[in-house]
């Protein structure tokens, strides 16, 4: 596991990133580089700006100041969107008209400038569902699945893409420990292939051996950026003492 990959160009970079809502500053002067082949955890108390940071870096929120580059291209000029996969905490409109698990995952393969044949799409979607252990639920309604299963479907949605940047917002929340292991293995596979995985998480537990770099946000800035082993105070005792069954909870939950 590499903490720094000096030879690689960053997959995703932020320079002097500032985000404000109604004159209230949420993020101030953030400088970050995320490199390929690494797993990065973004940690911090509720309201510390974790989701704001990733949404700003994805171009979903306006920046007050600063810039974001994706694979060296300013995000406003970037157009290879199939190279980014985003897993939100939950889908906005999943419980109105029935939507099947298969449709949810295959919706990730809709790109304005890249057409994927239906046959290929089906194979890719089923392989992704297989990876998260839900291939047998492909035809079921998404809203009939438990929260943890829905979270796995959203991860399958990301796995179905051929992205090399994965932005995951709480990917394992509500997922039971047996299935967490499957998700960790899937994410490990992505990183092994050279992907850059950035995840917001409250629990390092399932990922504690896989995270190369932890970034802690506090009061709109970065209060820690380094290896997990040197993380400062956690809300409970040090993460070193935790077992798989009692994952460390960082700073707040």
């Amino acid at each position: 596991m590499n903490l720094t990959t000096a030879n690689d160009a960053p997959s995703l970079s932020a320079r002097h990133l500032c985000v404000s809502f109604d004159d209230v500053s949420i993020l101030r002067d953030i400088d970050l580089d995320f490199f390929p082949g690494t797993t990065i955890a973004i940690l911090g108390a509720n309201g510390s700006g974790k989701t704001t940071l990733i949404k700003a870096m994805l171009g979903l929120l306006p920046m007050h100041e600063g810039s974001v580059d994706v694979h060296g291209t300013n995000i406003h000029d970037f157009n290879e969107w199939h190279r980014i996969a985003y897993v939100p905490q939950k889908l906005i409109n999943s419980a109105t008209v029935p939507v099947s698990v298969f449709e949810t995952v295959s919706s990730a393969l809709v790109y304005p400038k890249k057409k994927i044949a239906a046959k290929d799409k089906k194979a890719v979607v089923m392989a992704a569902l297989e990876q998260v252990g839900l291939a047998n639920r492909a035809k079921d309604r998404l809203d009939e699945l438990s929260d943890g299963q829905q979270r796995r479907v959203l991860l399958a949605r990301a796995l179905a893409t051929s992205a090399d940047i994965y932005i995951l917002d709480e990917p394992t929340a509500g997922v039971d420990s047996r299935n967490q292991d499957e998700l960790v293995a899937a994410i490990r596979g992505l990183v092994a292939k050279g992907a850059c995985v950035v995840m917001i998480t409250h629990e390092l537990g399932p990922f504690k051996y896989d995270i190369d770099r932890a970034i802690v946000l506090a009061e709109g800035g970065i209060s820690y950026d380094g290896p997990v082993a040197s993380l400062p105070n956690t809300s409970e005792s040090s993460h070193h003492s935790h077992t798989k069954n009692s994952p460390p909870r960082l700073l707040d939950s």
Binding site: G59, L60, W81, P88, S107, P112
Partner: peptide
């Protein structure tokens, strides 16, 4: 239709896919 479906399901995720 596919793009409108993706947008209707989740506008933010659709935007990250490059859908206008």
């Amino acid at each position: 239709g596919n793009q409108i479906f993706a947008m209707s399901l989740d506008g933010e995720t659709a935007r990250v896919q490059g859908i206008r």
